[in-house]
Write a protein that binds this DNA or RNA. Structure first.
Length: 267
DNA sequence: GGAGATGTTTCAAG
DNA sequence: GCTTGAAACATCTC
């Protein structure tokens, strides 16, 4: 269940293990989540290290250990982090478990779309090269506009999902942003007026900030006044207009929008 | 049994 | 060389 705020919530679960040493590492190194790295190094480097700090950025998380050891986690579509007791026995879809004195930090991912990054000395390149956060000062209307221009012919929905532009925005957040900005998800990204561009930036930031407050800080789902609870199945009603919502694939993903509120008038 | 799922990467075509 | 769309990845749930 991992978009920006869910990712941050998962990070906070493992942050229980800050300042504690890793006594033992369990991992299923042959699994796809370790693609692109030599998984045998992971237990060798991590055993005996203290988890010093962690950070999330978009859909990525980085856990930093003593000795400049870095463990990155991407939850993919079905990944999750949780803690268990120190005598926990790893189960079927647990791919890495870090045992500490008072808990076990567990990464579970049935569908294996998630990914583990690992490096020693400095953080992995993809972490160092990440795009500006939606909530950062660099995320200006000018910045958004220049990136949308490059994707001029793609539907807005597809561009909102581009992690190099909107880090952390996933399928439901993209729908929420477009619904609030009153923009049809099929609109070509290059055809927005300056005013519409400002709305994209404003609502992107609002949805990211509020999602973190509710989901990461308080652990509750967005309320009925959002598109969120109405978008998951056919038959949903727009909480602003009272009209039927539409669900159709756009940009390769299930997309939900409110026709009266988000017209296709190509300006 | 079949379709679809809150994601990314890769590949081929335009 | 860049953009774009579709397929592939693997498993579970409805």
């Amino acid at each position: 269940m991992p978009e920006l705020a869910e990712v941050e919530r998962n990070r906070r679960v493992w942050s229980d293990g800050h300042s504690s040493k890793v006594r033992e590492v369990f991992l299923r190194g042959e699994k796809r989540v370790f693609r692109g790295l030599d998984a045998r190094r992971v237990p060798i480097e991590l055993t005996g290290r203290v988890l010093r700090a962690s950070e999330s950025h978009g859909k990525q998380m980085m856990f930093c250990f003593g000795g400049q050891v870095f463990l990155g986690v991407h939850l993919g579509m079905t990944g999750s982090l949780r803690t268990e007791s120190p005598d926990y026995r790893p189960e079927r879809h647990d791919h890495i478990v870090l045992f500490q004195a008072k808990r076990a930090l567990v990464f579970n991912d049935p569908r294996l779309f998630g990914r583990i990054l690992f490096s020693v000395g400095e953080a992995p390149e993809s972490w160092r090269d990440r795009a500006p956060a939606v909530l950062s000062a660099e995320f200006t209307t000018r910045y958004v506009g220049s990136h949308l221009k490059r994707r001029a012919r793609s539907p807005l929905k597809a561009v909102l999902l581009d992690q190099a532009i909107f880090p952390g925005v996933g399928n439901w957040m993209a729908d929420e942003i477009l619904w609030r900005a009153e923009l049809h998800p099929s609109r070509p990204a290059g055809g927005l007026t300056p005013e519409e561009l400002r709305r994209i930036r404003k609502e992107s930031r609002w949805v990211c900030r509020e999602a973190i407050r509710r989901i990461a800080d308080r652990g509750v789902d967005p309320p009925k006044s959002w598109l969120f609870p109405h978008r998951w199945s056919d038959g949903g009603i727009c909480p602003r207009t009272g009209a039927a919502l539409v669900r159709e694939p756009i940009g390769g993903r299930t997309t939900c929008w409110s026709p009266g509120r988000q017209p296709i008038h190509f300006t």
